[in-house]
Structure formats: structure tokens, C-alpha cells
């Protein structure tokens, strides 16, 4: 180990910023980052310019945690830039891994999104002014990033070394991953194979959920607020609450079900699963206790927004990445 500390970067693309908070939530562990790394680029925490990064040697950053999906050309540019400069690029958090909530915008054509944002009831825009990608200002031409048609997860744009899901990733998992990298730096451990999902368990949320489970036969799906009170010790799905736990990667210690709320699937699919929504479709369909199509349909009416339920976090990562209209839109 040389006395020069390895370089560390973190970036925030199309996401809410919760991932950054989650890093801070590792508390004193954050000091280990400083102790072991030379933080060269972390816009939310320190000042740095893109051109500084552009000036770096390729591969000079050891570890980059990239959170957020790719929604505009700036996101894409920085993703490619950081890929070029980093040895290890981690898709950090659900947005970077699967697209997450911002990815639900893929259900609408981009024109509609812009229209909604700039000229509907939420925005007072009497002159119907829309943003432009370039402005002539006295100082010269100004560019703002342009939206792409859909949001893409990081690995649809660049090669990703590791995936760390979660909305946000749990702080104890972040701490564990930081520990691992530091151990690797000190030669005490080796890195997992490239492409691995890290900071997760190898099963699904049910594995960590303490609730009792039986064979399930659901006659009615209900929203959790319509069951008062839900049995605190019994599997939520068994009580008719559409809990995404069975299809969601473990690693969060089943936080939501432990707290009495259903899992909504932020950790994404279990390893090796290509489509999260499909796993959930088959999980929910399997517990329905009915044979007649009418009866099944009646039960399914209890899931008011099936697409949202199945793809809340993973729409852009699914084989059907977006609403067809979003593709076809003029």
C-alpha cells in the first residue's frame, strides 16, 4: 500500500438525493472514507468542476458511487466520463440500478412530461414558455441539458462493475460495502466477481421477515389501511395485503414489514432474475384462491394499479422498458 490514498468519487444523476443522505447516515463510518480515500469529486459534499474530472488520467479514480438514472444528456455525459476515469464503478441505489421512481416517467411520452411540468395546473405559465436547450445570453451561448426520451439505468449507458440496490441502500449495507473495499485495499479481502449485486442478501425479503407464514389462499386483496389493525405477526400477503416481499431482494432486514408496512420492492429482484414485475405477477397470481375468471378478476380488482405495483422501482430495467406510447410519441 502506497502512502498516496486511492481516489473516491460520488455522483448524483436523476434521483432524489436520498442516496447521499444514506451515505451520511453511516455516521462515523464516513470518517473511514476520508481516512482511506482521497475524495476527488462529490458535488453534493465538495466543490469540484467537470473539467477537473476531465483532466484526470483514465482509471485514476478507484471507486465511484454513481446514484441516479440517466434522464438527460448531462447525466449521460458524466456517466461516460466517470466510467472512463474509474476503476470500479458502482451503480448506487435503485435509480442507477433499475430506474426507480423517476423511471415511472417512462410511462408517459417526454412531451407530455414537459407539458405537465410547465403548463398544467401546477405551473403558472401564462406565456407558455418552455425551456430551451440553448440560450443566447450576453455572456454567450448557454446550454442546459436536454431530456432524453426515456430514463435508463446506468448499465444501459455504460459498463457497470457492481450494483447496489435500495431506495436508498440501507446504511448498514453501505458501511459493509465500504468496509469490504477498505479490506480489499489492505489486502484482507478480494472483490466479488464483476457484475455482482453487492450490499444485499442472497434471497428475498421474506427470508429476513420475522412474520409467520403459511400456505396462502387469498380471496381478496386489500389496502393496508383498509385492514384495521393488521395482524402484527402474520405474513402480510397472507392477510391480503399486496406485499412485494416475496419477489424483492433481501438485505434491508425487512424494514417495512417489520414496521407494519408492506414491502414495496425498492431492493429490486433477487439475483439472477431478469424481470422483477414478472416475478411479482406470478407471486400474486399464485396465491389467489379462485378458479372462475370472473372471481379471479374480482380479486384482482383489489390491486388498483397493477403496473405501478409491479414496476414501481424497476420499470426501466424491465424488458418492456417503458410504455409503448412513450416510444411511439410524436
Amino acid at each position: 500500500m502506497t502512502h498516496v490514498k486511492p481516489k473516491f468519487a460520488m455522483y448524483w444523476a436523476a434521483s432524489c438525493g436520498g442516496c447521499e443522505i444514506a451515505v451520511l447516515n453511516t455516521h462515523e463510518k464516513i470518517l473511514d472514507v476520508d481516512a482511506n480515500f482521497d475524495v476527488v469529486f462529490w458535488p453534493v459534499a465538495m466543490d469540484a468542476k467537470y473539467k477537473d474530472v476531465e483532466a484526470m488520467e483514465d482509471g485514476s479514480i478507484l471507486l465511484t458511487l454513481f446514484n441516479g438514472g440517466i434522464r438527460n444528456d448531462e447525466n449521460e455525459h458524466i456517466a461516460k466520463l466517470l466510467r472512463q476515469k474509474s476503476k470500479i464503478l458502482v451503480a448506487f441505489g435503485s435509480c442507477a440500478c433499475e430506474g426507480c421512481i423517476p423511471g415511472l416517467a417512462n410511462l408517459s411520452p417526454v412531451g407530455e412530461i414537459v407539458h405537465t411540468a410547465f403548463n398544467t395546473i401546477s405551473t403558472d405559465n401564462p406565456h407558455e414558455i418552455y425551456p430551451r436547450t440553448s440560450y443566447d445570453v450576453p455572456e454567450g451561448e448557454l446550454h442546459i441539458p436536454k431530456l432524453e426520451k426515456t430514463l435508463r439505468p446506468l448499465d444501459h449507458v455504460v459498463d457497470v462493475d457492481y450494483f447496489m440496490p435500495g431506495c436508498p441502500p440501507e446504511s448498514h449495507q453501505i458501511a459493509a460495502v465500504l468496509d469490504l473495499v477498505i479490506d480489499v485495499l489492505h489486502g484482507r479481502a478480494t472483490l466479488p466477481p464483476k457484475g455482482s449485486t453487492i450490499g444485499v442478501g442472497n434471497s428475498t425479503v421474506c427470508d429476513e421477515c420475522p412474520r409467520a407464514r403459511n400456505v396462502k389462499a387469498i380471496k381478496e386483496f386489500k389496502r393496508i389501511q383498509d385492514i384495521a389493525p393488521a395482524d402484527p405477526d402474520l405474513c402480510l400477503l397472507e392477510q391480503g395485503i399486496p406485499c412485494n416481499g416475496p419477489a424483492t431482494c433481501s438485505g434491508c432486514n425487512a424494514r417495512c414489514p417489520q414496521a407494519g408496512a408492506q414491502c414495496i420492492g425498492c431492493y429490486g429482484p433477487a439475483q439472477g432474475v431478469t424481470d422483477y414485475g414478472a416475478r411479482l405477477i406470478t407471486a400474486f397470481a399464485s396465491v389467489i384462491d379462485a378458479k372462475e375468471p370472473e372471481e379471479i378478476d374480482r380479486i384482482l380488482d383489489g390491486i388498483p394499479d397493477p403496473t405501478g405495483q409491479m414496476y414501481r422501482f424497476s420499470l426501466p430495467a424491465s424488458p418492456l422498458k417503458a410504455n409503448r406510447e412513450a416510444f411511439k410519441a410524436k
Binding site: L107, I281, L300, P306, T307, N323, R324, E325
Partner: peptide
Amino acid sequence: RVLTGLGI
């Protein structure tokens, strides 16, 4: 139902 939501 899910496909319908996806615009198919």
C-alpha cells in the same frame, strides 16, 4: 392488466 398499464 399489467400489460395494459404498459400501453400494450
